[in-house]
């Protein structure tokens, strides 16, 4: 069976990727997960320098999901390269680095530095974090902003460039198209949905940051719909995510149009989820006589629904 996925110059052994911000720098999970068995590890978002993030409480549980406002705490790109990348290399992990910036120049600088480092497989451009005021999502919420960041990073790196799209826009497909036209090798979606939870007894927001990003199974159907919409307008690979908890959930994203998937929140709930997902993909391929998993990508059959005699 062939589960491999190709994203630009990078080939992943399988489509299962640990989602950024949900897997530390990967090394934290070295005792629990065989990092080499994952398609890739997307590490926590990195700026040029160290950042402390928001004051706690940073997460709150909601029905079938959670809100987070971590605020992109991170060790910065230089310490990542010095301290974490060698350990990831030693464990033979395929590494996707999630990069952030408060300015266009910062994205470019971080991308340039990582391009010279040994052991980086691809760059995922975080233009979609809802939790920081400056930069980031302001690029991801405007078509010219998306175009500017993606094409600027494209010019300074030979690594695959994967802008990560926000769902907090009216028409996500137009952002997918902008990313493709700007030279992206793939897109990933979705980042979290801007959301809020309030303690009615104190009338205070449950997060110090007031608002945060919703993730987990609660968002899955919306994320699947967004992947489906993007698949219809772009040719480049799509990495889909949002609430994946089982192999069936992963397959749902792939049939909607994703070439690979990421798992975030459910890795918190079950860090031993990875071999279970892998077994589930194998079982599905065996049951349906599928030899190449990529053959199911975007194969959702909508004809029956559209031809229904009852529709006017």
């Amino acid at each position: 069976m062939d589960l491999s996925v190709t994203i630009g110059s990078l080939t992943l052994a399988n489509p299962l990727i640990a989602a950024s911000g949900c897997f530390g720098y990967g090394v934290e999970y070295g005792d629990v997960v065989d990092l080499a068995s994952l398609g890739a590890v997307a590490v926590k978002g990195l700026f040029l320098t160290e950042r402390e993030g928001h004051a706690p409480p940073r997460i709150v549980e909601t029905p079938s999901g959670m809100l987070n406002a971590i605020g992109l705490q991170g060790i910065g790109v230089h310490r990542f390269i010095a301290q974490q990348l060698p350990a990831l290399r030693a464990r033979r992990a395929t590494v996707i680095v999630n990069i952030c910036g408060t300015t266009l120049e910062e994205y470019v600088e971080v991308a340039r530095i990582l391009s010279d480092a040994d052991g980086v497989g691809a760059l995922e451009l975080n233009i979609s974090c809802p939790n920081i005021k400056e930069g980031g999502i302001t690029f991801g919420c405007s078509l010219p902003g998306t175009h500017a960041v993606v094409s600027a990073v494209r010019k300074v790196t030979r690594l695959p460039v994967i802008p990560k799209l926000t769902p907090n826009v009216t028409d996500v497909a137009s952002f997918a198209r902008a990313a493709e036209e700007s030279g992206a090798d793939a897109i990933s979606l979705v980042n979290t949905f801007l959301a809020m939870a309030i303690d009615v007894h104190t009338r205070r927001p449950r997060l110090t940051n007031i608002v945060g990003g919703l993730s987990g199974p609660a968002i899955r159907p919306i994320a699947v719909r967004m992947v489906y919409e993007c698949r219809r307008v772009v040719k480049i690979p799509i990495i889909g995510m949002g609430g994946i908890a089982t192999a069936e959930d992963a397959l749902e994203f792939m049939i909607a149009g994703a070439n690979a998937v990421q798992v975030g929140t459910m890795n918190f709930v079950d860090p031993f989820i990875w071999p279970k997902l892998m077994d589930g993909l194998h079982a599905y391929m065996a049951a349906h006589g599928i030899v190449r998993l990529q053959d199911i990508v975007g194969t959702v059959d909508t004809t029956a629904r559209q031809n229904s005699w009852i529709s006017s």
Partner: peptide, 16 residues
Amino acid sequence: EQVMGCGLGGCYSCVV
């Protein structure tokens, strides 16, 4: 004792 998301260092929610 802090609110924790994962217990393994993955989520950065339990910081002090």
